[in-house]
Every structure is written in structure tokens, then in C-alpha cells.
Design a protein around this nucleic acid. Sequence first.
DNA 1: CTGTTAGCGCTTTCAA
DNA 2: TTGAAAGCGCTAACAG
Lengths: 301, 301
Amino acid sequence: MRPELQQRVLDAVARLGYRRNENARSIRPGQHSGLIGVAITNIGNPYYGNFALGVEEVAAERGRRVLLGNTGEDLDRERQLVSDFVGRQVEGLIVVPSGPSGEHLRAEALGGLPVVLASRQVGGIDADAVLLDDVEGARQATERLVALGHERIAFLGNNVSMFTAGRRYEGFRRALEAAGIAEDPALASAGQQDLEAARAAMTRLLDLAEPPTAVFAANNRNTIGALQVIARRLADGRLAEAPALASFDDVELIEFVPAPTVVVSHDARELGGIAARMLFERLDGFDGPPRFVELPVSVQA
Amino acid sequence: MRPELQQRVLDAVARLGYRRNENARSIRPGQHSGLIGVAITNIGNPYYGNFALGVEEVAAERGRRVLLGNTGEDLDRERQLVSDFVGRQVEGLIVVPSGPSGEHLRAEALGGLPVVLASRQVGGIDADAVLLDDVEGARQATERLVALGHERIAFLGNNVSMFTAGRRYEGFRRALEAAGIAEDPALASAGQQDLEAARAAMTRLLDLAEPPTAVFAANNRNTIGALQVIARRLADGRLAEAPALASFDDVELIEFVPAPTVVVSHDARELGGIAARMLFERLDGFDGPPRFVELPVSVQA
DNA sequence: CTGTTAGCGCTTTCAA
DNA sequence: TTGAAAGCGCTAACAG
């Protein structure tokens, strides 16, 4: 092309503020939308925030943009979001599934779009998945509490029918079993989704005739909620000594807690990056069977 | 229409998995894309995570989806993102601007798309803006430290050329001035963007011949970094007593810090919701002059 | 109530 | 090297 003409066009572009319409472009056959759909349960939780960051960074490297939806743990909302994403011609999906049901994530329902499940698995779906090694992390953390001499160890977590909560409970259980400690049902409290419920559960535990001497909290909401109750009771003297605590999920400032603490830490950003990379491998043509990645976690006392 | 025909069509839709192509729909004149573009500096920071949550929730209520981009405080990246969003036919933009320069946010550059600036303002742009009341929050927090008897109060924050950091420094300065305390340049440390820098800055302050007796940290990264250094030094005995601390940004577990703490708390989710609502008012036809909202913060000792 | 057509902005193909 | 045309999936307008 004549350089002069090129210049004239470029000038006109600048002058008129022309911008290619990406949506119009994407309806042509053989053109991709450059979009990936990401459905997350709670973007306000720093764990998922960092997860989203990891996804976005890898997507940006690959010239893709992120369509973000927050499900709030609502399966209906997740269905709507996924359906909408498909209608918007996303090239692939990354989903933190809210529930055990996942027909809407089956390959046929998605018109063959690749999907990567993250953080949680859902039965019957042949999709790539990246998870944390929940069982082993929970087991090791509980083992540490046992090593500190504790036998009355409480469990605080989400409803164990939830994928991660169930796995973390399993790890907790295994550590107790290995130590020959019988489980006390009164010390297992599940179903706490948010801070308020976690505080209520911890309050109940401390008010038992024989309260636990240590607590395993299966996620950061339960850790923080439990510690808030402990802080209040230490301050007003109703508690002489803080129980030992193990937390699945790292939590900032936990070093100030005046009691032994064990932390299961992991890299949510990395998890997001891996999920995105797995998706891009599919987009690049990889067509093997579903892959299952379990990211190791590290346990620190 | 004959109900029978309708049923036949619906059946076919279900059987073939038909989904309307939203991108194709949006290129028709008079059709909107249903997309809003959100450019944030760091989605992994819980403050911005909650901000994004607030935006997403309001957008979802209004049937809009969020295109999310992370700028990482990089102005070039912000420009690319905004330009890409426009190309994707977003109906409007919500931007946490990364820098003082904002030609790419001028109405002409955006082809008339409405934009709402959040958290930070940028000069010369006639756009709606929602900010925290940084000056007053910082002033009140510092005032509390003064009321506790402190005179050697350090400032830890981002580079004061950054919008929020500058405003928070201004509030800090005003409180000192009102109390008749001369500023000591050795006690003002700015430019810390992340935890590592914050720790280094705090270390420097504690190593002064005459270290501060109190610290005002202008954001959660600086608060956490400072407290990490304090925790370490309390643990190894290099520090006998923790300095008092005021934190702009609420921080979980701060109640365990064994020293007086003042917290400037605010609701990032609400801030995001307001930004989104302001944008939707524009989309609904509101055409008044740029609005400026300053969200009050609350200061707790 | 149903069917047809034009045209949105784009890219690919084919023709000049 | 440049120009013209076809057609992507959709909706609005119009005709039957």
C-alpha cells in the first residue's frame, strides 16, 4: 500500500476517533471474541480476588479480556451467568462452582466451549479442574494441633456437603483418627458461610461445658470469626487463655494472636493463573482427557 | 402467536442448544451491548475486590455484565484497557485512575461514553467522581493519636503525588498543624506501594535515633507491613512496646495488636455500588454537570 | 399472525 | 494495489 495513503487513513482514524467494533468483528466466522467468562462465588473475598487477579493477568498476556460474574454461591445465578457468557461468545469459561449440580456445565450445554473448574470439583462433569490439596492441608494442620498435645479439637467450616468443606473435614478427621482421638460431634460445627455465622458458632463452642482447647478453621471467614470472639473474650476476661488455632487460608496479622497458630497457606493468584493456562491450552487445540491438578499447600506453625 | 408454534420453537431451541448471539445483536443500531467496563488498579486487594463486588451487584440488578481489567497502577495498561473496552461497545466505564494524566478519559476520547472515576480524581476530566473523604478521615485519625499524647507521629503511605496518598497526607498534616506540632521530615515516608516496601519503611523508622511513638498508615498495605515489622521486633525483644497506630483502611484482626489502634473504616462495596448507580443515571439520560460525591468514613479507636 | 428484507460493522474473497 | 461484494446473526420495518 502507498505509505501516503496509509498515513491519510491513520490521520482520519485519529481525527474521527475511529475504533474497530470488536463485537461486529467477532460475528464473522473464524473470528474469536477475545473474551473469557469467569464466574466466581465472591469477588470481595481476598482469596477469590487474588484468584481473579491471576486469571486476568494470564488472560491479558494472551490478549484476552475477562467477563466477570459474581455468583454469591447461588446456583441459579451461576446458571444465568454461564448462559449469558455463552451468548456473548466467550471462548472459554473458568468457574468456581457453587454447588454439586452442574448440568449447565456439561460440554453439550456449553456448545463445546472449554471450561475449567477451579477450587471446587463437580461430579459428572468431564472438565479440567484445579484444586488445592484440601485434604492433605487440613490433615497436616490438625496433626500439628495434635502434636501440641490437644485432644479436644473443634472443626469450624462451611457445610460439609460443599466440596472444599467436605475435603477439609476429611483431612481433619484423618488426623484425629491417626492419633487415635475419637471425634466429638459437639465439637464439629459446619454451615458457617460468613463472619457472623462463624462468630455464632465459635461462641457456642466456647460456651460448652467442656470447651475445645484447639480449633481447626476450614477457611478464612471461620478463622476471622473465631478470632474475633476470642479477642472479645480475652479483652473482657471471660477467657483466660486463647485456644490454639489452625487456619486453612492464610490471614494477615495472625502473628499477633497470643496463642499457638498453624496456617495452611496457598497462592490463590497462582491457582487462577494455572486455571487460565489450562483453558488456553484447550483453546490452542489440546484435546486430551480432562486434567486434574491439585496444588500443594504449605503448613506453617 | 399460536401456542403450538411457540412450543415447537421452544423445543427446537432446547434441542439444538440455540443461544442468541449477543454480540451480533449489539451491532444493530439502537441496541446496547449490556456491558460496562471496569478498570481497577489491583483486584487482589480486598479494598478493590469489594469495590468490584459493589459494582457487579448493581450492574447485575440492571441486567449488565462487567468487563474487568486490572491496571496494576500502570497508566499504559489503563489506556489500552479503556480503548479496548470502547471497542467492545461498553455502555459506560468505571475507572480507578492510575495516574494524574487522563486524556484517554476525556469525553471526546471516549466517543461520548459516560465514565465514573472512583477512589481517585484526575485533573481536567469532566466526569462524575466518587471518593472517600480522605482528608477528613486522615485528619481525625491523626487527631486521635495526638489526643493520646503523641507528638512524634510518622506517616507511611504511597507517593504523595498519588491522589489518595496526597489527600491523606494533607489530613495528617492538618491535624499536626492544629495541635501545634512541627512536622519532622524524617518521620514522613512515602512511596510504599506494597508490603515489602512498607516493611522496609517501617524498619527505617524504628531504627531512627529517635523513633516515632505513633504511626499513621495511609492504607492497608502500609498498615500491615508496619505491623509485621512491629510483631517481629516485639517477638525477638528488640522492641519493648509497640507504637500506637492509626490505619486508613480497616484491617481484620487488628484488635489483637497490643497497642492503641485507630481505624478509619469505610465501605468499598458501597463505594462501588454508588459508582455504578451514578453511571446508570447517565445511561438513563441524566445530563447534568459532573457530580462529585465524597463518601464519609468512620473513625474508631 | 407470519414471512421477507434490509442493513448494522466487519473480514474474506474475488475482480479489476 | 485497490475496489466491490458477500455474508456472519441479528432486529426493525414492512408486506402478505
